[in-house]
């Protein structure tokens, strides 16, 4: 090797070395180009342009994505990038100021509040839709006609001793009950455990947990003795074609049993199995790019009662869009950017 060094240098030839140098330069220039584009989203005061980063819930993502798509159709210079990783994973980005809009299928937790405060990230939440949780059974299951909240809790609570259908009510068959539900990464899971069982995360550990609500519905449609719960949008999407039925659940409003249908959910009697869906806005982002983020929020609120039903959810109560606008007004005023937002309330 060493004795060949000088020859090596000579035959390598200038053209080749300069090619390598040129390629290296291009590479470095490319990298430099990419660093400058990372933060280059400022909208310069006039015109709505730039990139909005949206994290959060898998459940709410379709609504935010629909809002983003409609917004981008209207303002082609803007881009709304929705990357859903789950409510919890999204909050951990949001409280570090890495996200502008956070979709959430539950309220922010104490721990997440503390993190946001420690990082100096201010936020506000806005209700943008309603989701129902469907309790589902197989169509061949002819014994389960309704379920009380106590029974639901008994089936799912931590260290539950219900193994057979007959453990719920004596007249049910002596067959093993096959349980399917969401895993702990989801806001749906947090909502169910908090509101049905009584404490977040306190659930039996021997059920089939998945991050895909589709899989829950498919599993229940595939076995007579299966039982589960999941977002009602997923249930309605396959209910016509697959042997699956929703079980009427006791209402904590009037003690009657209701199936997860639009009228009961929007009336508020399908409770506690219906829940509000939220977006959280970062104060930092609103202050940094008021026109882009503020306009998107206004646009979202203006259309929210259409976006949610288009994605298989239920509209938030009729007064919600106005309440959201009022809340945003207050935030924008606090930040001193109230006159920099192009899109106006229209509800």
């Amino acid at each position: 090797m060493t004795d060949n060094q000088s020859e090596w240098e000579r035959v390598a030839g200038v053209s080749r070395r300069s090619f390598i140098a040129a390629a290296g330069t291009v590479g470095v220039a490319g990298l430099a180009g990419c660093t400058s584009s990372f933060g280059g989203d400022d909208d310069g005061g006039d015109g709505i342009s730039g990139t909005i980063t949206a994290t959060g819930s898998n459940t709410v993502a379709p609504i935010t994505d629909r809002a983003g798509e409609t917004f981008m159709d209207e303002y082609p210079d803007a881009s709304v990038d929705v990357d859903p990783q789950g409510t919890g994973a999204g909050f951990s980005e949001f409280v570090q100021g890495n996200s502008d809009v956070q979709s959430a299928s539950r309220m922010i937790s104490e721990e997440e509040r503390a993190d946001a405060e420690a990082n100096g990230v201010g936020w506000d939440y806005f209700e943008v839709g309603t989701d129902g949780l469907a309790v589902v059974k197989n169509a061949e299951n002819d014994w389960l006609e309704e379920i009380t909240l106590d029974e639901l809790k008994a089936v799912w609570e931590f260290e539950s001793d219900i193994e057979l259908w007959s453990d719920i009510r004596d007249e049910y068959p002596d067959e093993e009950i096959l349980l399917h539900a969401r895993d702990s990464a989801s806001g749906t899971f947090d909502y169910f455990t908090e509101n049905i069982i009584g404490e977040v995360g306190l659930i039996r550990d021997d059920y089939s947990a998945t991050s895909q609500t589709n899989e829950i519905m498919d599993a229940v449609a595939g076995n007579q003795y299966a039982f589960g719960w999941g977002g009602v949008g997923y249930y309605h999407a396959i209910a016509d074609d697959q042997p699956i039925e929703a079980v009427p659940v006791e209402s904590d409003v009037d003690g009657e049993f209701y199936p997860p249908e639009e009228e009961y959910i929007e009336d508020g009697v399908y409770s506690p199995m219906a829940r509000p869906l939220f977006i959280f806005l970062s104060h930092y982002s609103l202050e940094d790019r008021p026109n882009l983020i503020g306009s998107f929020a206004r646009f979202y609120f203006n259309g929210q009662r259409e976006f949610a039903p288009q994605e298989g959810f239920y509209a938030s109560p009729p007064e919600m869009p106005q309440e959201n606008h009022d809340k945003l007004d207050a935030v924008l005023e606090d930040l001193g950017v109230e006159d920099q937002v192009d899109v106006q309330p229209d509800v």
């Binding site: 180009g33 990419c34 584009s37 990139t51 990038d81 589709n214 997923y234 298989g312």
Partner: peptide, 26 residues
């Protein structure tokens, strides 16, 4: 929605398939 450049966020074929497969609508 739109073809990305090297410095854009993106969804490649496998991930778009993954997301579609997880949607409720058949």
């Amino acid at each position: 929605r739109t073809p990305p450049g090297p410095f854009d966020t993106f969804s490649a074929m496998p991930s778009q398939i993954y997301i579609w497969a997880a949607q409720p609508q058949p």
